[in-house]
């Protein structure tokens, strides 16, 4: 502080210089961040447009060598696997959140919170392995299916859903809970008629956030859902292609006509990013639109 107060007459050259260097460094960091980000976005859009045609959405890769073909099978796979993962995660996640907020015994809920916290950082490839191990323990080795992929993804999605739901349930105003309790509602009735409706927008936004997280996951699906060139709409049997794995395999198993494979990969990347952005946008809109009006009180 003495250095600051020491020269009331003006700022010394050295201090001014340091400030200039810092300014330049900040701008440089800003540029260093902006350049790769812009490059990534521009690349995906420009290269993705090459194959953004109807065939891409209507055709699979069955019997395709070289140019042509599409990602219809992978698109369907992504939709089915994501839906199945959501169907598994939402009841378990919301139920766990309700248990944590409303019923949790001190020791058990602290353990559960800890797990949820730590599992948010679970590497996705580990989730894939764990799902594989679980399925081997229950069904037997070698089984790859869309459902297995959905189980792996729900390991990643459950913590997200639990966290956001529990946070919203905790925000439900005490006076509303007391109003319902004072009217002679049992605990479950209070939760069902006051807690969950007030928390619903936040829970929905949290689920969308969770979908946004899993819809682009590659590694777990590569391990347990596998890859195929054909359309498979059956979640329980047979390998199922998904968009992220499709991108990976287009690069991994390139044929002679490399450009055709690259183009398909970029287009799939563009479509996938579109899907992810759609979900995060929807999550944000829902969070912003619904929360203020229904949580007021």
């Amino acid at each position: 502080m003495t250095a600051l107060a020491g020269r009331p007459a003006g700022v010394s050259t050295r201090r001014r210089l340091t400030d200039h260097v810092a300014t330049v460094a900040a701008w440089a960091a800003f540029a260093a961040a902006a350049i790769p980000l812009v490059s990534l976005l521009v690349t995906v859009v420009t290269r993705g447009l090459a194959r953004l045609d109807m065939t891409f959405f209507t055709s699979s890769m069955r019997g395709i060598v070289g140019a042509g073909g599409g990602a219809a099978h992978a698109l369907w796979g992504t939709v089915l696997v994501t839906l199945a993962a959501t169907a598994i995660s939402v009841p378990i996640g919301v139920g766990t959140a309700v248990y944590l907020v409303e019923y949790g015994r001190p020791v058990l809920s602290r353990l559960l919170w800890f797990l949820v916290d730590v599992m948010t950082g679970l590497p996705s490839v580990v989730a894939g392995l764990a799902a594989y191990a679980l399925i081997v323990m229950v069904v037997g080795p070698g089984a790859r299916s869309g459902l297995a992929g959905a189980i792996a993804l729900s390991l990643l999605m459950i913590p997200v859903v639990v966290k956001s739901s529990a946070e919203m349930l905790r925000l439900v105003p005490t006076d509303l809970r007391e109003a319902a309790t004072g009217l002679g509602a049992s605990r479950p009735a209070v939760i069902a008629t006051v807690g969950l409706p007030a928390a619903r927008p936040g829970i929905v936004a949290g689920v969308m956030l969770g979908v946004g997280r899993i819809i682009g996951e590659t590694a777990p699906l590569l391990l347990v859902a596998g890859f195929t060139d054909s359309l498979n709409l059956n979640l329980t049997t047979g390998r199922m292609a998904t968009l992220p794995v499709y991108i990976y395999s287009q690069w991994q198993n390139k044929g002679a006509d490399q450009a055709a494979y690259d183009n398909r990969a970029w287009t799939a990347a563009l479509v996938l990013i579109g899907l992810v952005l759609l979900f995060s946008l929807a999550a944000r809109l829902l969070g912003r639109l619904l929360a203020p009006t229904s949580l007021k009180g």
Partner: peptide, 8 residues
């Protein structure tokens, strides 16, 4: 209650 708390 102290504050009116109709269900919002």
């Amino acid at each position: 209650f102290q504050r009116p708390n109709p269900f919002p």
